[in-house]
Simulated assay, not measured.
Amino acid sequence: MSEASAPGWQGILASDERILWQGQPDRRLRIGVGELRRAAPGLFFVAFSLFWMYNAARSSVPFALFGLIFLVIGLRKLVEPLLLPAYLRSRSWYTLTDRRAIVATDTPVQGRRLISYPIDAATPVEMVDGDPPSILFGPDADAGFRFIPEAEHVLGLLRELQRSNAPRPETTDPETQPE
């Protein structure tokens, strides 16, 4: 059975397309400076709504309960940037073929999504240090295989793929050249 007809790949790969590598990102929760920066407005929202609810409860309990809406919004803004990236990684699969890189996700809200990035000599490819490292490619900073243990191996495969997909210079036969 060819890889293109393997279960789950029907209609996705070309009949002569070969899978070079498949993997999943590391699923660990990662909280860095970027995530904390994105969560900071949520922390402010939560603190302000709690302060407001406490002071409003001293005069009118029903009026204080109105603050629950803002508390929930703040909690979502606080927790989402911290937990959502790890959840999305746990629902992602990566594939490198002899033509392209594929990032597949399956989430309850968005369903199944498949994004394909053609790989050729002009495709920017960058390895980003981390534990484990990430390989970025494509037109934007979000495209890539994030936190993969086999990053060095995959980078080698990508570089080899770029070389094989590079335009070939035209060769000339010196005997047929006009003098």
Rank of each mutant, 00 (worst) to 15 (best):
L78A: 04
V79D: 04
E80H: 06
E80K: 11
P81N: 00
P81M: 02
P81Q: 03
L82M: 10
L83G: 06
L83W: 11
L84M: 15
P85L: 08
A86E: 09
A86Q: 13
A86P: 03
Y87I: 08
Y87T: 08
Y87L: 15
L88H: 15
L88G: 04
R89C: 11
R89M: 13
R91G: 03
R91M: 08
S92K: 13
S92Q: 12
S92Y: 12
W93N: 02
W93V: 01
Y94A: 03
T95E: 00
T95K: 07
T95V: 00
T95S: 00
L96R: 03
L96H: 01
T97K: 06
T97M: 05
D98F: 03
D98P: 01
D98H: 02
D98I: 00
D98T: 02
R99K: 08
R99I: 05
R99F: 05
R100E: 01
A101C: 11
A101S: 07
I102C: 00
V103Y: 09
V103G: 09
A104R: 06
T105A: 07
D106F: 00
T107P: 06
T107W: 07
P108G: 08
V109F: 13
V109K: 14
G111K: 04
R112D: 00
R112C: 00
R113I: 01
R113T: 05
I115L: 11
I115G: 12
S116I: 06
S116G: 09
S116L: 03
S116V: 10
Y117D: 02
Y117F: 04
P118R: 04
I119H: 04
D120P: 05
A121V: 06
A121C: 15
A122W: 03
A122C: 08
T123N: 11
T123E: 13
P124T: 14
P124L: 12
V125L: 14
M127E: 10
M127A: 08
M127S: 04
M127H: 10
M127K: 14
V128F: 02
D129R: 02
D129N: 02
D129K: 12
G130T: 07
G130W: 00
G130H: 09
G130A: 04
D131C: 05
D131R: 10
P133V: 11
P133G: 10
F137V: 07
F137R: 05
G138I: 11
